[in-house]
Amino acid sequence: MNSIALGQYYPSGSVMHRLDPRMKIILAIVYMVVSFLCNNVFSFVLLFLSAIALVLISRIPLKTVLRSIRAIMFIMIFTAVLNIFWTKGSPEELLISWGIIQIYSSGIYNAAFIAIRIFCMIIGTSIFLTYTTTPIQLTDALEQLLSPLKVLHIPVHEFAMMMTIALRFIPTIVEETEKIMSAQKARGADFTSGSLSKRAKALIPVLIPLFISAFRRAGELATAMTCRCYRGGKGRTKLNVLRFTYRDLIGVLMMAAFISGIVLLNIFAPGYSM
């Protein structure tokens, strides 16, 4: 019960876990952009290797990672197959022609490229953002990264506070749901049999107490926060300030090296390009 895992955070304690979360958000975005820069076999191979490297650096078991992308696999294959059939290349690239179906070598390349790109984007974002960063770190980092938006009167702090409180209360409310369900079961409520509409109706005795309790908690929490001098983000300081360290610098340099690698391969490597 107490071991509710939020997201897929995997505490392996790697270097990746200790990077500044703001940095990781930026790296994740850059990585995605770079995956769109790739345009030939060599740069795509480098991209693929970089994804493997990310998994190794963050010390997340490959099995765990692969299991989590199983759901995406379908989209990957679907897009790849579409590309095989839809790409129209020049006549000398034509491999198979069978009625209206014509497959070009460029189609095969494109399919492989798209598959690698989707794969790497998923691996990249999940390594940077979910496996190695807790939801609360992400919230903090987003608040700081988006803080320039405050000038435009966008309530960045308030959104971040809402996220924090939601994260804080999820385990409490899950526990409460279980308790209320047990209490209603003890009074003969049946959540597991009957038609769909009957089951939906059986949830009313759980949902009503749950909502009432959530409102009560919200009221009490608001009072407690007021008593602790909370008055929004204005003038607030932070205990744990995110800091840019030498580790983050190494991260930036590695990313820069990777980008130059991709760009150089794009320009100088031979073979088919997208």
């Binding site: 209490a183 209603q184 003890a186 009074r187 049946d190 005795p205 107490p209």
Partner: peptide, 20 residues
């Protein structure tokens, strides 16, 4: 097991939170 729950009545902690 449902019939057992009628024969053995259970009042959980803070049962007022189950009123609906």
């Amino acid at each position: 097991i449902g019939s057992v729950r009628y024969r053995v009545g259970l009042v959980m902690q803070y049962p007022e939170y189950q009123l609906f």
